[in-house]
Design a protein around this nucleic acid. Structure first.
Lengths: 188, 188
DNA sequence: GACAATTTTTGACATAGGTCAAATGTTGGG
DNA sequence: CCCAACATTTGACCTATGTCAAAAATTGTC
């Protein structure tokens, strides 16, 4: 869990005891590329810390997939609806590469939040950060052209940009595949 | 602080001791309509729990104001950049009505997060909720037409809809004032 | 290493919503 | 109660990006 613990510590410093409590709560698991970790309409009952590989979350609206986020090494993947509100997911999460992850039951994660103040604060801070990210991308959506948004995305997530295919990036940016392709063509 | 405590408890149950610790940390204050609680480029050093009245947060981009959120009774208002990253704010927050609020120094709020597990969890949960809200509005932005978004907004925030002026709502929805006005005209 | 499947590029055309500016309506302070 | 400041509506015209479909490039698999 090297990568995962590192990322947690970068968000909020945790003690060795907390680290151990986490380690005692997870199970290593592996998934092939294109595997659905979370499906809309079902309970998953666990969250995944990504040690290796990349995933994307997406909505399925009128048969169209809309990517809402990417998670790489160190990230945590779960169904918001289930973790926050104990409802079935409205979103899907699938692997974009082979993935090594650590599975933690949601119930255990919630118990850790309730009882371990370091993890409660870590949970607060990762949500703050994600909130800030979305907030910024909302602003970009309102003030930048499609091309400028793509540039900003490349800058902010160079890795994702290289590892994810165009269609996913396009829907994340809220533009069509054709438009994104044209933008790339025009740039060179 | 009735309204404020009620809203906190609705997000995460806190004990009477925690309630008291909060009460001991705040100062009541009042602001007239159109007062700027948070300004871009400066340190504010505190957060405000709104007891009465409404505020909006906005960005100023190329001389244009882009509203990113509204806060009513029970809400909490602060500079994300300052609370999360100890940087000056990039956003403004101004009152849209006369406001009664409770001021808490950011330093004290952070100390409470670090030392009080109930408040750490409350902090986690309000951020989860805001994150979910933004997530949903991001989806709406990508899948609904301007008119449908306005309908969804009216449904989700009927109060804000009545109390805030059109221009603020338009920029929140990411459409122009003229377009929103036309939509309203067409509807009847 | 060649074919099938998938991904990306390109083309022709359509449109939702933007822009700018003027007209009208509403509101609060003296 | 009236005027100035502010908020909303309306009009004429425009453009960034979408849609749909076909061609080209890339990738994975037997």
């Amino acid at each position: 869990m090297k990568r995962v613990i590192e990322t947690i510590r970068a968000a909020y410093p945790i003690s060795p005891e907390t680290e151990q409590a986490l380690k005692d709560s997870v199970t290593e698991c592996r998934f092939p590329k294109r595997y659905q970790l979370v499906k809309a309409g079902v309970y998953v009952k666990c969250a995944y810390f990504i040690e290796k590989g990349m995933t994307r979350s997406f909505w399925l609206v009128n048969g169209e997939e809309i990517t809402t986020s990417f998670s790489c090494e160190g990230g945590i993947v779960f169904s918001m609806d289930e973790l926050y509100y104990n409802k079935v997911s409205e979103e899907y999460v699938e692997t974009l590469e082979d993935v090594v992850a650590y599975r933690i039951p949601l119930e255990r994660l919630l118990e850790l939040f309730r009882t371990n103040i370091e993890l409660a604060n870590w949970g607060r801070i990762i949500h703050q950060n994600e909130y800030r990210r979305l907030h910024r991308s909302h602003k970009e959506r309102l003030t930048l052209s499609a091309g400028e948004r793509y540039e900003a995305f490349k800058q902010q997530f160079p890795q994702v940009c290289q590892r994810a295919q165009l269609g996913y990036i396009a829907s994340y940016l809220g533009i069509t595949l054709s438009t994104l392709s044209r933008l790339r063509g025009a740039k060179k």
